[in-house]
Design a protein around this nucleic acid. Structure first.
Lengths: 143, 143
DNA sequence: GCTATTGCGTTAGTGGCACTAACGATGTAA
DNA sequence: TTACATCGTTAGTGCCACTAACGCAATAGC
């Protein structure tokens, strides 16, 4: 990409794709060291900050599709980080709740993520990082 | 994603992923109407702005992997937008060059892309768009 | 001139992510 | 009770970034 035409270098959609790929590389490899991936983190955050939930509600909280969430919960349950128990009040539902191990893993992932962002955002100053986040929030969650 | 925990909403790597997905949706569907996809655009820009090139050099200019470029050139050639001719000076190489139809398609894609970005970046002011682009450039092409 | 290395285009395949379709089972409303 | 909606689940699609390995052609070192 050395000789990339100048025109191409400032195409916003392309920049977003490249930046996201870069972020994915950092985050995937960082989480992999902790036997996790980013969806695990999303689910653990949602459970930690808003308490136990059905899979449907967890999907709503995290933006992970119901269909993909099945595998995520499977993986988290295998590792003993969450528990999947049938909801007695509604037999269609599972209640997903954090275990103690899950809470510990959450703390580890949170710390790892801070380090990863330090690496990812290294070219930006603190003020620029805030700016970028604000702009992205505006873009992704408009209004 | 209504009840997404506040903590999750400002994770930079996540925001970049969401923004890129949003951009991909807009750009894929927009280019699809012109029987193209974003890689076609990248290749056409590179050929238009820097002239004919081998596939290897085109890969370098666009950031598209050599292996993926094969299909892109196939698709462009099928549509009569580029020509793939053996390089007489180096029989390992193909020289890829724009056809007249390719130049016309490039103009169409360029115009379509402007409209797509208008849609994608609608929540941002002109100044904010410039800011975002500058920050992403800094992030993606540091130094 | 021969050989080893490097570069070329190509094929095949991987894994993550976003997303759709359809299913059986269970709940809720008309 | 019949119709409809929701739940978790399975399967599958398409794009993207990336890797591995191939045969062939060119080049560099001896």
């Amino acid at each position: 990409m050395e000789k990339t035409p100048a025109r191409l270098r400032r195409v916003p959609s392309r920049l977003l794709g490249l930046a996201a790929a870069q972020a994915d590389r950092v985050v995937n490899s960082g989480f992999a060291e902790l036997d996790a991936r980013k969806w695990h983190y999303s689910a653990l955050v949602a459970l930690h900050d808003s308490g136990p939930a059905s899979q449907a509600e967890l999907s709503d909280r995290t933006g992970i599709y119901r269909s993909d969430l099945v595998a995520v919960i499977n993986e988290l349950a295998e590792r003993g980080l969450v528990e999947r128990t049938p909801d007695p009040d509604d037999r269609r539902r599972n209640v997903i709740s954090l275990t103690e191990a899950g809470r510990e893993q959450f703390v580890r992932l949170e710390a790892a993520l801070v380090a990863m962002h330090e690496e990812l955002l290294a070219p930006l100053t603190e003020a620029e990082r805030e700016q970028l986040i604000d702009l992205l929030v505006k873009l992704v969650f408009p209004q």
